[in-house]
């Protein structure tokens, strides 16, 4: 296996607030790892820091062998990072299809629009609707679909199941499983542990801006009690 992402001693700041205090983790190509933790532990900030969306960051982020800590967000994205933000980030004044086609293609490895509509048939029916008219589930599907078109191979998925009906969560589970089969590397922030557990190769638990525990999928049974303690569930 080759390394897709190596985060070392990552510190991040919003204004004067020091949010991440030295985060370290590694993701191999084709792996799916989760970032778990309570609200405010620094999970979303970790994803945003990888893309350079915080005010200031230090440490090292190596993407596909390339140091990106000093690059601007658009240059990092163009190295093949797809981001699915927590608030979904659908542009309200653009139609569903404009949202889908908005993102530049970074490589020829991306899915074609036809493949995407096959994977998300609802989006095809709603393609002319303005972004603000889509339901939460449709917005989430669109937020996932549009990063698949770009050819990004590393997907950062932030709370994709949040606030969605169980049937949609199941559909998303099938999509994520499929993406993993297709060889995508995925870092997922997830509150819904039951959604994440069967999909992930490894779980990292964050607390106060640090990774305090790492649990592989084969240790899940043994360390369940510990995880519950950290997550307060």
């Amino acid at each position: 296996m080759t390394e897709m992402l190596r985060v070392s001693d990552l510190h991040s700041f919003y204004g004067e607030s020091h949010i991440l205090h030295g985060v370290d983790f590694v993701v191999e190509r084709g792996e799916l790892v989760t970032l778990l933790g309570r609200n405010g532990a620094g999970r979303t900030t970790t994803l945003k820091s990888i893309l350079g969306l915080v005010d200031r960051r230090s440490g090292s982020i190596v993407l596909n062998g390339r140091e990106v800590i000093d690059l601007a967000p658009h240059r990092i994205a163009r190295l093949g990072v797809g981001w699915c933000p927590e608030e979904r980030g659908i542009f309200a004044s653009l139609s569903a299809e404009e949202n889908l086609l908005l993102l530049p293609e970074f490589s020829s490895e991306g899915m074609s629009v036809e493949e995407i509509y096959r994977m998300f048939p609802n989006l095809y029916e709603r393609r002319k609707s303005p972004g603000m008219r889509l339901s939460g589930g449709e917005q989430q599907m669109l937020a996932m679909a549009r990063i698949l078109r770009t050819g990004a191979r590393l997907l950062l998925l932030d709370e994709i199941t949040e606030g969605l009906a169980p049937v949609i969560v199941q559909a998303l589970g099938r999509v994520v499983r499929k993406l993993k089969e297709l060889g995508y590397t995925i870092v997922m922030v997830e509150q819904n542990f039951r959604f994440a557990a069967p999909l992930a190769d490894r779980h990292h638990v964050l607390e106060n801006g640090r990774i305090v525990q790492t649990v592989g999928k084969d240790e899940l049974q043994a360390k369940q009690g510990l995880l519950h303690q950290y997550l307060g569930v």
Binding site: L51, L53, A72, P73, H74, A77, R78, W83, P85, G89, F91, L102, L103, P104, F106, R146, I147, T150
Partner: peptide
């Protein structure tokens, strides 16, 4: 900000 995170200059 969001647009930039999607790779647009």
């Amino acid at each position: 900000r969001l647009l930039q995170a999607f790779g647009v200059n």
